[in-house]
Amino acid sequence: MTCAYIAFTARGLALAQQLAAACPGSVARGGADGVRLTDWTAAQFAQSDALIFVGAAGIAVRAIAPHCRSKAADPAVVVLDEGGQFAIPLLSGHLGGANELAQRLAAVCHAVPVITTATDGRGVFAVDEWAKRQNCAVAEPERIRCVSGALLAGQSVCYAADWAVSGTPPAGVEPAAAADRADFALTLTPTGEALHLIPRIAVLGVGCKRGTTAEKLETAFAAFCAEHHFAPQGIVRAASIDLKKDEPGLAAFCRAHGWEMDFYTAAALRTAKGRFTSSGFVQSITGVDNVCERAAVLAADGVLFIPKWARDGVTLAVALAPFAPDWRWKNDEP
């Protein structure tokens, strides 16, 4: 987690430095050395995972207000008073990790963590915290309240999962009689009105003609996801043959999605395990019978999930890394 601290007094600065020694991050003093709070907040909201204000809560609230977007996108925001008595998560308590961070910071300076989210206060299963613990993206953050609201009202909720979830489900959580009856679902192919939790375990294998633009790749990718009902949030990186290392369109396409890329030689691609869609034409050009499927499998160190799909000179495939979800959702659980 990338942290950024800001304090406004000498005493607060000393506390910020103490906290940063335990939870590393940059430290600034507002109003000093040309640091303007508005500029600092805008920059850190864009580049840091967590903003820690050492000072009055009102200062933090006014500073972050113009930048708040959604619980799925906002960084964690925590406030500590300059005396180190209280640590208060203000924003992104579960998905952004602010509740956990507040507890960690409180332990450093012996403060009281002030956790105000209802599920934490009542000891109720928090589906968004579980999603974070299981390395899942939340496809529809606005639906979290439906699941949490039902549990807080003493009702049961039903789940569906495309993987076996080990352990015992939390109180109030039961398997759905059918996938379309689930309140939340663990899946890479979301359908229906459930809250969909998307495991971030997928690798996109890419093949393309020389000179393919980022726009053409984007159009192909959108069609690929639509045809397979595939959630793009599940992709963590992309992969291809080393012949594509210098393709500007491919680089721009991956950069726009925030994906790193893996490139493999033809010899390395031939070592991939599994059954792949063979093409004599691809073999004649690249030295290997398939690029997108083999590259995805190697980069994922897993299995093919969606086989080769082709359109307008672009080939795509998806492979999945091993995934073993369990029912742990609190960070103090073993």
Rank of each mutant, 00 (worst) to 15 (best):
L80F: 00
L195I: 01
I64Q: 04
L316A: 01
R311F: 13
R104N: 09
A10Y: 06
L269F: 03
P66N: 00
P232W: 06
A239C: 04
A20D: 09
A317F: 04
Q155L: 15
D180W: 13
A10P: 10
G280W: 08
T189H: 14
A126Q: 08
V165A: 00
A295T: 05
V61A: 04
T38H: 15
V173W: 04
P24Q: 08
I285A: 15
A63M: 03
I235E: 02
A268D: 14
F45L: 02
C146L: 15
Y159E: 02
A238Y: 00
A179R: 15
H196S: 10
Q47I: 05
K216G: 10
W259L: 00
L269A: 10
H257D: 03
A57N: 13
H257K: 12
G121R: 13
A164V: 12
E193Q: 14
Q103A: 06
D301A: 12
M1C: 03
C146S: 15
G192W: 06
F253D: 01
D39N: 03
A299W: 04
A295W: 06
H110S: 13
G280P: 07
K245C: 14
R294V: 05
A106W: 05
L316F: 03
D289W: 11
D312W: 09
S70N: 11
R328G: 12
K330V: 06
L15A: 00
V114H: 01
A7T: 00
S284C: 10
E174T: 14
G207E: 02
A267S: 13
G12W: 00
E227L: 13
A251H: 13
P75V: 00
T286D: 12
A118L: 06
A56H: 10
A295K: 07
V157D: 11
T189Q: 15
L316G: 03
A126N: 05
A22F: 09
A256N: 09
D128P: 06
L95F: 05
G211D: 14
L151W: 05
A16T: 00
D262M: 07
V61I: 09
V27P: 08
G154L: 12
G258Y: 03
A267K: 13
V303K: 15
E227P: 08
T119W: 01
L51F: 00
C158H: 15
A324H: 15
A238V: 00
S156L: 14
C225Q: 10
G302A: 10
A28V: 09
P169K: 04
D33Y: 06
G274Y: 11
G97L: 01
P89D: 05
L105T: 02
N99P: 11
H257Q: 12
E100F: 04
S156P: 12
L91F: 09
P169H: 08
A98K: 07
S284R: 05
D332H: 11
G58M: 13
A268I: 10
F323P: 09
N99Y: 06
A76K: 01
E142P: 01
I241C: 07
A185P: 08
G280R: 14
P190Y: 05
F53K: 04
W40N: 01
G84N: 07
A32I: 06
A299E: 04
Q47H: 15
G302E: 11
W329T: 02
G280Y: 09
A160E: 13
I115V: 07
A98W: 03
D39K: 00
E100L: 13
Y159Q: 05
P190G: 03
D326H: 13
Y159T: 02
I52L: 11
I306K: 15
L250T: 11
V138F: 01
R275N: 15
A161C: 11
F323D: 14
